[in-house]
Design a protein around this nucleic acid. Structure first.
Lengths: 229, 229
DNA sequence: CGCTTAAGTGGTCATTGTCAACATCGCCAA
DNA sequence: TTGGCGATGTTGACAATGACCACTTAAGCG
């Protein structure tokens, strides 16, 4: 096989972009099996290379998983940016973010768990740099929305407001992260109602639980499993 | 040896309560390595039995992990029940629950992840029964606290209120679950301020983000890593 | 043309999950 | 008492895996 040139494909080397091929294969397997316990060898098989080729690109299985996770963060950031585009008011943007955040998780459970899960829990080491960048991007989106008034009135990014904005981000993020994972774990549901759920949960939080609790949409259960079918 | 003596321990059979020994070993390794990627063989080694004695008690590694997870739920339920004891007002009980919930997670990261993580994500099968029971218990605690007025005014458990209570539980749980995991993942922190954090987050949510945002305690960062050290 | 070096190949090793065949013990029925 | 039975634990074996190694190939460059 001399060149084996694909249409526009860039394959400057033997296989051509094995790195990407491996990551893609991982994403495939991840969405098929919803588990990170695939073998590097299988990814190699899928990419049509020998069991060892991936090690030229990833020192470690961990490193490969980190790359996959980073892709997940990128997808999320793109998706959120996209979701905001159509919305005009800061409040609407906040809801759009919430909706698509939860969706992203529910639609890619294993990926979401990989992104936030503890595959690096052992050494307590630092997170891969790519992840940090992507997560920061997401955080910036939130900060903007809040500064522009997503929580009711604008909160310009003055040093004085900084901490309040951070508090808002933390609460919002906690809420959405928790809801997403509860849905992913099947602890609340059903998971096809994610849009209604994220909306009503966010709504309830914004108005303040102590004041009014907006009830859940019908047919939603809270708890480990549907109590009665 | 005729009848196993009860003095130093109950070992009515060969090893005696291997089941528990294995689970305990798993809990040990879990807290040492903070990872669920230990081998059944190592647990067997620790228990002083041969490599697949455990398989007489657990069909699967999955089944073993499920048992460990169930223990985690039990510990959590006990802890929450305990935390509530001292408190008099429903509101105080809610805060106590929040505090100890987050603590439980932060102090046992891997265990908490195991409890809610996706080691059973593959087949989408049902959760082990023991987990469900323990989780239901926790949920009942919350329902009581809310019914008694933890969110401001009492919400007696009438059919009419049922859905509102469920909504309250969901929001509260999502928030605490999310916060716990963000802390566990080191995405916010530092994690020694968990008490202040859970309190201020809960406070912020109760009062309603749209109304007043209570600022974060000082020295807390929101995001993937401490921005400047 | 020959050199350097990244990309891919094949082989190897300890470890792991799981299976099947045996051994051992308490218990119960004959 | 005895013999068997089932639960418990043991031994040996197997394929698959993560990781490492030395080797080969081919791209790019002077």
């Amino acid at each position: 096989m001399s060149k084996a040139n694909v249409t526009a494909g860039e394959r400057p080397y033997h296989h051509g972009d094995l790195q990407r091929a491996i990551v893609n294969a991982a994403l495939e397997v991840l969405s098929e099996t919803q588990s990170t316990e695939f073998s590097l060898r299988e990814l190699a098989r899928r990419a049509g290379v020998t069991h060892n080729a991936p090690y030229k690109h990833f020192a470690d299985k961990r490193e490969l998983l980190a790359a996959v996770s980073a892709v997940g963060f990128d997808l999320l950031a793109k998706r959120l940016t996209n979701a905001m585009q159509g919305q005009t008011s800061p409040r609407a943007r906040l809801f759009a973010i919430a909706r698509d955040y939860v969706r992203h998780g529910v639609e890619n459970p294993a990926l979401y768990r990989l992104m936030f899960g503890g595959y690096l829990t052992g050494p307590g080491d630092a997170r891969p740099a790519i992840e940090i960048v992507a997560a920061e991007k997401t955080k910036a989106l939130l900060a903007d929305a809040i500064a522009q008034g997503a929580l009711g009135r604008p909160l310009p990014k003055t040093p004085r407001n900084e901490r309040k904005i951070a508090a808002g981000i933390l609460i919002f993020w906690s809420l959405m992260h928790g809801l997403t994972l509860l849905l992913v774990d099947g602890l609340v549901g059903p998971s096809r109602k994610t849009d209604e759920l994220s909306e009503s949960v966010l709504q309830g939080m914004l108005e303040g639980l102590a004041k009014r609790i907006s009830a859940l949409p019908a047919g939603v259960w809270v708890g480990p499993r549907e109590p009665a079918k």
